[in-house]
């Protein structure tokens, strides 16, 4: 009963969120411009072509009518057909999902352990030379706009050194009915740079959080007690400090992971990584409304799911927390 209440509450919240978001995005895209100019070849199309295309896309209807049509289609599970690619919008989004998923997972697999590790060590040795270096590194990395970081990675590691490919996804392999590039050597080589560009700011973020948490915990009674009890520093760190700082870290990892899934727009654009973020920015620029709406819905669902997961983890990691 308890869980059912929570789940239904979450679902209602999610539905509300989706509705509000879809309305804003719908009107927003509508106010930006007319997608018909991206559908016809503006340099050759006649006024008649444009009028026909407008009718064919249903854009001659009033906005509210278009929106209600959109809603009623959603109820039937249809997001419509992409104006530009003439494919079901959902298929397009799902088709880009593996690329984004593997990039985000890969980046987080690098960022989380490295960030937590650096943060723990720096926090335990607060004020030491190591701590200062780590702290400076974190602030510097957090200060770099990600497009600059990405381009510098390309310039340094791909163009000047020639070690890694500069962009694209590389070879992929079929697994679970989707193409995955992490399964091939070539694909792995392609994923390193964009994953690094995504991971670095997250390393900084996680590291700072872990460091701050460690410092706080170490000042508390129970750590002093542990030390007095004669436990080894390593044991204290891994067994007592880490669990106590894990809540904010898990939160940030989950949230950043959600962000990576959807908003890695810049990194995906620069590295020509065919993921959801790139699809979103392309679709916005092409005013491909069905795809924008489908992508945003996916993003919202991912966010809500991740938030729910975070709450669940809270409950597991900290028995004091009760979900409500």
């Amino acid at each position: 009963m308890y869980w059912a209440t929570i789940a239904s509450g979450r679902l209602a919240q999610a539905a509300l969120l989706l509705l509000a978001m879809s309305l804003i995005a719908f009107i927003g895209i509508h106010s930006i411009g007319n997608p018909v100019f991206n559908v016809v070849n503006i340099e050759t199309a006649t006024a008649e072509d444009i009028r026909q295309a407008t009718t064919a896309l249903g854009l001659d209807q009033p906005v509210w009518k278009q929106y209600f049509l959109f809603l009623s289609n959603i109820v039937r599970g249809e997001f419509g057909t992409s104006y530009i690619y003439h494919q079901p919008a959902v298929d397009l989004v799902l088709g880009k999902l593996p690329a984004t998923l593997e990039l985000a997972v890969f980046a987080m697999l690098v960022a989380a352990p490295v960030g937590v590790g650096l943060g723990l060590l720096a926090g335990r040795n607060e004020g030491s030379a190591f701590d200062r270096v780590v702290l400076r590194f974190c602030v510097l990395v957090a200060s770099v706009p990600s497009f600059w970081l990405s381009m510098m990675l390309i310039l340094g590691l791909a163009v000047l050194a020639g070690w890694l490919p500069s962009g694209g996804r590389g070879d992929s392999m079929l697994a679970f009915g989707q193409e995955w590039s992490v399964l091939t050597g070539d694909g792995l080589r392609h994923i390193i740079l964009p994953a690094l560009a995504l991971a670095l700011p997250n390393i900084a973020l996680i590291c700072r959080l872990a460091r701050a948490g460690t410092i706080e915990v170490q000042g508390q009674e129970f750590t002093r007690f542990c030390r007095a009890k004669g436990l080894s520093a390593r044991r204290i760190l891994m067994r007592h400090t880490l669990p106590n700082i894990s809540i904010p870290i898990v939160t940030i990892i989950a949230l950043q992971f959600g962000g990576m899934l959807a908003f890695a727009v810049v990194v995906e654009t620069i590295f020509a990584w065919p993921g959801v973020g790139k699809l979103l920015i392309d679709s916005i620029q092409l005013l491909d409304r069905p795809v924008v709406m489908a992508t945003l819905t996916f993003v919202a669902v991912a966010f809500v799911t991740l938030n729910a997961l975070v709450d669940l983890l809270y409950a597991i990691l900290d028995p004091r927390v009760r979900l409500s």
Binding site: A158, P165, S166, G167, I270, A272
Partner: peptide, 18 residues
């Protein structure tokens, strides 16, 4: 044929011989 929309990425791809 690979679609690479970013001009910089195309430049880089031909430079590195990809």
């Amino acid at each position: 044929i690979r679609v690479i929309e970013s001009p910089a990425a195309r430049v880089a791809a031909i430079t590195t011989g990809e």
